[in-house]
Amino acid sequence: MKVIDSGESSESLEDPKGQAWQGLSGETLALEPAPVDGQPSRYVAAAYQSGAPTGASEVDVIAVRSSGGDFMLRLSWPDGDPDIAYGERKFPDAAAVMFPASGDAPLQEMGSPDQPVNLWYWRPDLDGECQALTATGLGSVERADGGGLSAKSAYDDGKWMVVFRNQGGDVPGKAAVAVWEGGAGQRGGLKSVTGSWQNLEDAQ
């Protein structure tokens, strides 16, 4: 996936519906439910063997570098019924982008003790906060220093749009995306994920 040198300011790009994104085209990535077999929860593995909640089947991703040099990503995916908070047997929707911290961190397992991954995590109830996370395997997510990270979102026309911004951050080599359909019960390991790492080619 190409990282487009947009020439627009970070601030204008932060608006997911903003003009700055008009005309930019990224890629549409297929999403599939994460397998429950390997989940580090006997309960999840057994109880969701059948009937695991499903969510979005694809996500549009545009990667840009702003005029200010920030690496930014816009994810958008269709969702007929946005879930913005915890409710009766409902969770808020969510999205995350995962990057290997180094080397060939395994994707399905969300890294390993030797090869951690970093994640940017957005949820509509976090009031624009983007959680920076690291993981060394399924179930191991920890909060990390999120300095410089932010996420802005919009829901419009049956679609979530989320812009991640990493102020002054380098473009990582590759990324994977996960999206949670909270209304269906997706959260934690129950999620829709891209099946493979996407290489990010920095135009610079």
């Binding site: 989940q39 580090p40 929860s41 006997r42 309960y43 999840v44 399924l138 179930g139 191991s140 997510v141 934690g188 390991g189």
Partner: peptide, 10 residues
């Protein structure tokens, strides 16, 4: 404890 068994995060 089913709850302990269920928590994927330990």
């Amino acid at each position: 404890a089913a709850c302990v068994d269920a928590c994927p995060r330990g």
